[in-house]
Amino acid sequence: MKFILLLFVSLIFASCSKQNDTQSVTIYVSEDQVFSEPVLKAFEEKTGIRVNAVYDSEESKSTGVMNRLIAEKNNPQADVYWANEPIRAEVLRKKDILVPYESPNAKGIPEEFKQKEHYWTGFSARVRLFIVNKNAEMVPASVFDYAKPEFKGKGVIANPLFGTTTSHMAALFTLLGDANAKQFLEQMKANNVAIATSNGESADLVASGKYDFALVDSDDAVSRLKQHAPVSIIYPDQKEGETGLFVIPNTVMLITHAKHPEAAKKLIDFLLSPETEEILAFADCAQIPLHKGVKIPASLKPISELKVMKIDYAREADEMIKIQPYLKAWLDR
């Protein structure tokens, strides 16, 4: 009788544990809360699964929750991580904080935006493009126009030690090799490129007419178009033989020893769905879907019509750490 009672109690606990596993999920988020929160609420409404979200603060943007995941490695509190680019995903993968998960919704996403062993998958991307003042006499067509004499003193770029400009620089070093990338940056310096504090400030300097062009994230450019600033968008390096533009997808990943693995997988499936990509395309962040056929605003081009830079994000993660001393010295000169 005692054995039967203990068995009954254990079954109840097992049932409750399984129920809790599917009724809530904890996600750490580096994407801006103003854009990510509506997506997570849509998931809650669709599935009935409660989402506990922990967001990066502006002060620790893109590194705060990543560092928390590293600190919690032996006692994970998160089930899922939504990063706003692939570099942090690669850092976590190398530290054995992620476990592979191949979502059925990943099948429609191009291979270059997925980790080959399914440790992370990309979705809803920003691209690096030019915002150009409409009064500019000459329009740049390539990132390497920053170094051409005819554009001397006309271009501005965000501080390369921070944010997506750092990622873009690391991509160029990966693509060109150290010697060629450094030569390009030295030519930029000699060409009097201006340095702004951020992509947003770069876009504002172009909108005001102080500079003719800037390399920024697509959301910075689209927001100025929505504000009716006198600017246009140029997608760089799209010709035959050119590098293509740098793409920065969001990434989502499953945490090792997640407490709610079934709910976590459902959330990952939702984030990788065309439904989520449409939400983010029409939000103010104006992110470009990676699935084909998703509706997008008229101000954006679909990813299938763009020539994309071929990048190994794992190599880029290593390169970004390696080039920091050089970028600091370049900036201080």
Rank of each mutant, 00 (worst) to 15 (best):
Q115T: 07
G122S: 04
S103H: 14
L175D: 00
H168N: 14
A158R: 08
N159C: 04
E117H: 03
G122D: 03
D96I: 05
V132H: 09
L129E: 09
N67T: 10
R93N: 06
Y146H: 00
E111W: 01
Y101V: 07
A83C: 08
F151T: 03
F173P: 04
P86H: 05
V132N: 08
R88S: 06
N67Q: 15
S103Y: 14
L98K: 14
P104W: 05
K154A: 09
P149A: 09
G64A: 09
V143L: 13
V91M: 15
A78N: 08
I157N: 01
K116C: 01
I97M: 14
Y146K: 02
R88A: 06
H118K: 14
R93S: 07
K148S: 02
K152H: 03
E90P: 02
P160C: 08
A147E: 03
S103R: 15
A158W: 05
L172K: 11
P110Y: 05
R88K: 06
L98T: 09
G155K: 02
A147C: 00
E85V: 00
N133L: 11
A89E: 02
E111S: 07
P104H: 06
K116Q: 08
Y81L: 15
Y119M: 06
V132Y: 07
R68G: 03
A141D: 11
N159E: 03
K95Y: 05
K95P: 02
K94P: 03
M138R: 15
F151W: 09
T121Y: 05
A125V: 10
A125H: 10
N135K: 15
T165A: 14
Y146R: 03
A170E: 08
N74M: 05
K148P: 01
Q115L: 09
S124H: 04
F151E: 04
F113C: 00
N105H: 11
N67C: 09
E150M: 04
F144D: 04
E102W: 04
A147S: 06
P100Y: 13
R128W: 09
I97T: 09
F144S: 04
K152R: 12
E111C: 00
T164W: 12
P110A: 03
V65I: 12
Y101M: 10
G155W: 03
L98Q: 13
V127G: 10
A125Q: 09
P140I: 15
N75M: 04
I87T: 10
